[in-house]
């Protein structure tokens, strides 16, 4: 049927003879050469130029055989499907998952090591480490006795839900445990990729600029908690803590902020409390 007006494509007859529809309009036209002395008998060839035979099925001249296909699909829909699967699995097993995001060098791994050391008596902790190359970070985590699995993204600048799903399959996660996912050091792309975590935790260190939340707003918008790390260095720096927090709250008024130092353990109790409160909420959910 023609998609322009709805007319059908019945059997075509020319001079009472059935004409087979063979030629589609997509094929190049062949012209007779002027030098040909043969008498031309077009009907003997029994070929028809059918402008309606192609995929658009339109008979009207001037309308392209190309057709429009509605998609209306989120570019990240595939990732979000994987993330939902991860979230379902984690929530079914009462696992509290955190996605730690920051620029490179903000002290994520040191913070993780100290967090594990402080909590490992009370909680079973597993770590998924994301880096472009090397398994140095996973090795540092394993030294604490916690289970760690390293994902090397190669050229990839972030972890995605599929990678994390594969990692979860490979490790034996305990029910009611804590899963820390250390994302690739990057303040841009990881903001967009839901991994199925309960919360994104953004780490900003005071050796960076206080205007980072405005420069990289998406990450601070996506996070639920901001850890302002390396606060032990504040006496040596010109970093304006109040301004940094003001900027962060401007991007995300619902952001919780904890000032912390992984080096001298300032602020660690508040951070550990936050983890344990979230973990309890996860575990009392009906399994």
């Amino acid at each position: 049927m023609c998609t322009t007006c709805g007319c059908g494509t019945g059997q075509l007859y020319v001079d009472g003879k059935k004409i087979q529809r063979e030629v589609s309009s997509d094929k190049p036209m062949h012209y007779r050469s002027y030098s040909s002395n043969e008498t031309h008998h077009p009907m003997q060839e029994q070929k028809t130029i059918d402008f309606g035979a192609s995929i658009a099925g339109t008979h009207a001249p001037g309308i392209s055989q190309a057709r429009m296909v509605k998609i209306e699909q989120d570019i990240l829909s595939k990732n979000n499907q994987y993330a939902n699967k991860n979230r379902e699995y984690l929530s079914k097993h009462g696992i509290f998952a955190l996605n730690l995001v920051s620029g490179p060098g903000s002290g994520k791994t040191t913070l993780l090591v100290n967090t594990i050391n402080a909590l490992h008596d009370r909680l079973s902790i597993t770590v998924i480490e994301g880096d472009q190359q090397t398994d140095y970070d996973a090795a540092r985590i394993r030294e604490t006795g916690a289970t760690a699995i390293q994902i090397n993204t190669g050229k990839g600048c972030h972890l995605d839900a599929h990678m994390v799903g594969r990692a979860i399959q490979q490790i034996d996660l305990q029910t009611n445990s804590l899963l820390m996912i250390e994302n690739v050091g990057n303040l841009v792309c990881p903001a967009n990729f839901d991994l199925g975590e309960a919360h994104k935790v953004v780490i900003l260190s005071v050796t960076e600029g206080e205007d980072k939340p405005l420069k990289y707003p998406d990450m601070f918008h996506a996070a639920d908690l901001m850890l302002l790390n390396k606060c032990d260095l504040l006496p040596h720096l010109t970093f304006d803590v109040d301004l940094a927090i003001k900027y962060a709250l401007q991007v995300n008024p619902n952001l919780t902020v904890i000032q912390i130092s992984a080096a001298d353990n300032t602020g660690m109790p508040a951070w550990l409390e936050w983890i344990e409160a979230g973990h309890i909420l996860k575990t009392i959910k009906p399994a």
């Binding site: 995929i55 190309a66 057709r67 429009m68 296909v69 998609i71 209306e72 570019i75 401007q250 008024p253």
Partner: peptide
């Protein structure tokens, strides 16, 4: 911030889309 009450707690209604809308195919 909100031009009326100067609050930063603003919900995005549109403008954060990343969608494949449609294709022209042959």
């Amino acid at each position: 911030s909100c031009p009326k009450c100067d609050n930063y707690d603003i919900r995005i209604i549109r403008g954060d889309e990343m969608r494949v809308k449609e294709l022209e195919v042959k």
